[in-house]
Design a protein around this nucleic acid. Structure first.
Length: 507
RNA sequence: GCUCCGAUAGUGUAGUCCGGCCAAUCAUAUUGCCCUCUCGAGGCGAUGACCGGGGUUCGAAUCCCCGUCGGAGCACCA
């Protein structure tokens, strides 16, 4: 940033138009990167948005986008944030009871608090009531066509024999669906749209179907007649006062489908923004929730917050702040084309957030032990190079040190042991030299980190697997949950003590 | 096949509605130098893009047409 010219501009503005300055400042506040585009037809105080996750697994990084964007809009428009669990498929995308809470935790991690949390599986009676109203309005009919047969008719633009059924008969059959009198596939309730609509995706879609498998939530386990997403979501959006919907392009036709229901009811459809899919560059492994769940179930991952997992829980455990994730997501904007998120931009933002507070420690991975003589009794590197006032560490040297193998000098070569001094390799040992720091400044001697022979064993859990190493003795004093920097290695979050475990955040 | 949608540097984004101030913004990435006892932080640079072709116009990233490429839906999944 050219902060100088920005400052100049500000100064000029202060002279020319003092009230305009306030706006600019407010605009600038906590705002890095381009802001999200304004919502269409949005009025402050009258914006309600929702995240509508299916709780069939933990949230991965991609899921953060919706919450991040909605949460940001909530702040901009002083709006409402609804979290609605769309858990209406007890079978193929079966909800996971642990995921409800995990998703709320993820939203909290990102720094947002929903104004309202609802579960579709609590609301079946509401959907039934609306189905009955829809039938009364002539907007739905019960259909017992086998799926493939209907599909053929539909693609040809032809009505099935059930389409002209009376409302009375449909009512009767729908009540039998509700009562569980039909088996799976025997009867559905279809919305009567336009069977010759140019877009085949909109023709007489299914609103309710029968699912035999009980819902995992006990309170919903007795229901067999389940609404499809487009019906349930359409009704709920209206009932919860949703003013603006953000959703993926895969749901592009949803608004049009639901439009038929809205028309029957005389409702006004919310504003809709569609966006493309997000890929995350670092995780080429499939980001799908079901894959993740499988990997956790069969032990390939230690849990949803395994350092190798692309989940928000894992990022949290690694010491990446939700704020950094939100900032990166907001920068992605809401374009309809698919986007790829670079984790490096999340990490860059996190580094900014965390660097100033992160105390420095040495961690040597897979160290090589080298006897060391003719050096001071201890090394005293600063706790933080930009904050001398935080003091210096004290790392005792007792006859030997460990270095990372890449840092071991060639025979007769020199390295500068950070915070200690220059040493020269002599055979298999290191011997202190009387070189001053100029040796480093001249570029002849690399500065390396090191630990004494009896460093603290640390397991560093990284996205690429675990690494073991030893940290300087002072690391034993680092508190759990603290984010530290292992100099020249990475930022990491202290996860456990005795034995010490740290989670790799980023370089 | 039918119906939608999109295309700016490695990545993301601003600008596109209302054509000129855009030889195109910012961030990230990569990289050079300075500083530094970190490969962190900081400072100063560099690299790198308007999908193609026509048209309209004095003037097009922006408007129009064609093409190409990419994405989505046409589920009793969400």
């Amino acid at each position: 940033m050219n902060s100088r010219s920005a400052a100049e501009r500000r100064e000029r503005l202060a002279e020319l138009a003092p009230d305009r300055l306030a706006e600019v400042e407010a605009d600038d506040d906590g705002d890095d990167g381009p802001a999200l585009p304004d919502l269409p037809n949005a009025t402050a105080g009258e914006v309600t948005m929702r995240v509508a996750p299916n709780p069939n697994g933990p949230w991965h990084v991609g899921h953060a986008r919706m919450a991040a964007v909605i949460g940001t809009y909530k702040q901009r428009y002083d709006g409402r944030f609804v979290c609605r669990f769309d858990d209406t498929d007890p079978d193929t995308k079966r909800p996971d009871l642990g995921a409800y809470g995990a998703i709320l935790d993820a939203i909290d991690y990102l720094g947002f608090t929903p104004d309202e949390v609802i579960r579709a599986s609590d609301r079946l009676e509401t959907y039934y009531d609306h189905a009955r109203d829809l039938i009364d309005a002539g907007g739905a009919y019960a259909c017992s066509c086998p799926q493939a047969e209907f599909s053929e008719l539909k693609n040809a633009g032809e009505a099935c024999p059930h389409r002209d059924k009376t409302a009375e008969q449909t009512h009767a059959e729908f009540e039998r669906m509700v009562d569980g009198d039909y088996g799976e596939g025997e009867m559905v309730l279809r919305v009567r749209t336009e069977i010759e609509h140019p877009n085949p995706a909109l023709r007489d879609w299914v609103a309710f179907r029968v699912v035999d498998r009980p819902h995992p939530r006990e309170t919903a386990a007795d229901y067999r007649c389940w609404p499809m997403l487009d019906f349930q979501s359409g009704v709920d959006d209206h009932l919860t006062g949703v003013s603006h919907i953000v959703r993926g392009i895969d749901l592009q036709d949803s608004a049009k489908r639901q439009g038929f229901v809205y028309d029957y009811f005389g409702w006004t459809y919310p504003e809709v923004v569609h966006w493309g899919h997000v890929q995350v560059d670092e995780f080429d492994a499939p980001l799908s929730t079901s894959t993740l769940s499988e990997m956790v179930a069969d032990g390939r991952l230690d849990g949803w917050d395994d350092a190798r997992a692309p989940t928000l829980a894992a990022l949290e455990r690694r010491g990446v702040r939700g704020e950094a994730v939100v900032a990166a997501m907001v920068e992605l904007g809401t374009s309809t084309s698919d986007v790829e998120l670079s984790m490096s931009s999340v990490y860059a933002k996190n580094r900014e957030l965390v660097d100033d507070r992160a105390d420095r420690y040495f961690l040597v991975r897979n160290g090589e032990r080298l006897p060391l003589t003719d050096v001071p009794a201890e090394g005293t590197p600063p706790v933080h190079p930009d904050h001398e006032e935080r003091g210096r560490r004290s790392i005792p040297v007792d006859g030997a040190v460990c270095l990372e193998s890449d840092d071991v000098p060639t025979p007769d070569g020199r390295v500068w042991l950070k915070g200690l001094g220059c040493v020269r390799r002599s055979g298999d040992r290191l011997v202190g030299t009387d070189d001053g720091i100029e040796a480093v400044r001249e570029g002849d001697v690399p500065v390396v980190h090191w630990v004494p022979d009896d460093g603290v064993p640390v397991r560093l859990r990284t996205p690429d697997g675990d690494v073991t190493g030893r940290a300087e003795p002072g690391f034993a004093g680092a508190a759990v949950d603290e984010v530290v920097q292992f100099e020249r290695v990475c930022f990491a979050r202290v996860d456990a003590r005795d034995p010490a475990v740290a989670y790799f955040a980023h370089r």
